[in-house]
Design a protein around this nucleic acid. Structure first.
Lengths: 242, 242
DNA sequence: CACGATTATATGTCTAGACATATAAGTCAA
DNA sequence: TTGACTTATATGTCTAGACATATAATCGTG
């Protein structure tokens, strides 16, 4: 072991500049609207080139913490309170992350020409073929969620022959259709007879509903409705901003 | 009007490079795991300096579309399906965005020393002062949501004297406490007597519940519970990734 | 063959310039 | 006072280099 103290593992300069400024914004020292120092002032303060401070400021602008205006300068933005990052994990991953045993059960699978209701659910015009799947996810043998899914076979032909009796359709799609976009709608209902039975809860008990509609470059892939017992399941979203 | 066609307003070079690569990833031409060309290859292809392609690749890495490994290269990442951006707007903004008339009504306001229940809800140890507020938001005179809020006065002393009879506490806090962090929990319940009356729905009807806990550099600010009629209100989240 | 040392290489960061461009601010005329 | 024109300036992008650093691949040795 050397006698000289090892230098603390300093982050790179541009990261330090970014962190310095971020701290002042987050603590309120530089409130919304405050003009942060010009690039050339930061260059002087940190003794580096403009590209270095530019990289720091560009990243802050990308994170929506500051707004950069030509000729005017860079300004602290007002907090962006309207968006939160909601973690919607794969159900299997969610359950195993809780340290519980994952169980999957296929309840029904039908291959059919899309009905009017199917077409509306998938948001398509043409009456192509679809697969309708109903299944149940459980944690330690206790029902965790029931899934009701429609897959558009004109976009994912392979789904017609996939074996969903072992593998959940969500996982299968994840590995066969990369980089989709999706829209989630969250609502609440009370359990009807069928739902109550599937989830092993009382009729009239609250259920949290997640409807997910997934597409890939303007092509519909799948529409899924997930029903969770409302008093047990909780979705947690964290975000930054007022 | 000139006879020469105006040049299309080209984006800058690094943006074009980024878009080119992004397109190949999103269309599946370069699937997850695919090694994208080395920086020096892109330099040759686009006839620019390395800093330019580096900027494009760095942004793709920041967006989690690619992973960069020293000595090995840059690789297309697997889709990050687990996070969605959930828009949780200010209720007033949400209602006016729907083109409906916003209404606000203060139901109750109490200033008290934190009870044990208050302390647990706020996640604090000490029994300081708090304000408890109950209010209702409506759209075109129809109840839209009821709010039940607790504000920690040791963090936000001004809230003790703020007038919440006209301004909703959410808006007030937004303008007085910038850049907080928050955690949302979403669940479902059925309406009890009081909730049913406040929302003008039937007892036993489903309600969507959002619990939001807000802090600022380790200091609790506020805890709020929002109750929405479950069959009418819908939260929409969009995201990218499988 | 297993394992440690060496080397090659792709990315990470940085510099000291350059020109482009949007726009705030100033100037001047109607 | 108002509107049109000019100018100054901060940011946006880019270059052609440089050295640092992590690590995949290779080489040597026991």
């Amino acid at each position: 072991m050397s006698l000289t103290t090892a230098a603390p593992d300093q982050p790179t300069l541009y990261k330090r500049i970014r962190a310095d400024i971020e701290k002042r914004i987050l603590t309120g020292e530089w409130p919304p609207g405050h003009r942060i120092p010009f690039e050339h002032e930061l260059v002087a303060r940190y003794g580096c080139s403009r590209m270095t401070v530019n990289k720091a400021l560009s990243e802050l602008a990308q994170a929506d913490l500051i707004e950069r205006r030509r000729r005017a300068g860079s300004f602290v933005r007002r907090p962006q309170h309207q968006s939160a990052v909601l973690k919607i994990a794969d159900i299997r991953a969610e359950i195993t992350a809780l340290g519980r045993g994952y169980g999957y059960e296929l309840i029904g699978r039908k291959l059919r020409t899309a009905t009017a209701a199917d077409r509306e659910r998938l948001g398509v015009r043409k009456a192509g073929k679809v697969v309708a799947i109903t299944c149940r996810h459980s944690a330690d043998k206790v029902p965790f969620a029931v899934e009701d899914r429609l897959i558009d076979l004109s976009s994912v032909p392979d789904a017609a022959t996939a074996d969903f009796s072992r593998e959940p359709p969500g996982s299968w799609l994840l590995h066969h259709v990369p980089w989709t976009e999706a829209e989630h709608t969250i609502s609440a209902i009370v359990a009807d007879d069928r739902t109550a039975e599937a989830l092993d809860i009382a009729v009239g008990a609250p259920c949290l509903v997640i409807d997910r509609y997934t597409w890939r470059s303007a092509r519909t892939i799948t529409a899924v409705r997930l029903l969770y017992p409302g008093d047990s399941h909780r979705l947690v979203a964290r975000f930054k901003g007022g």
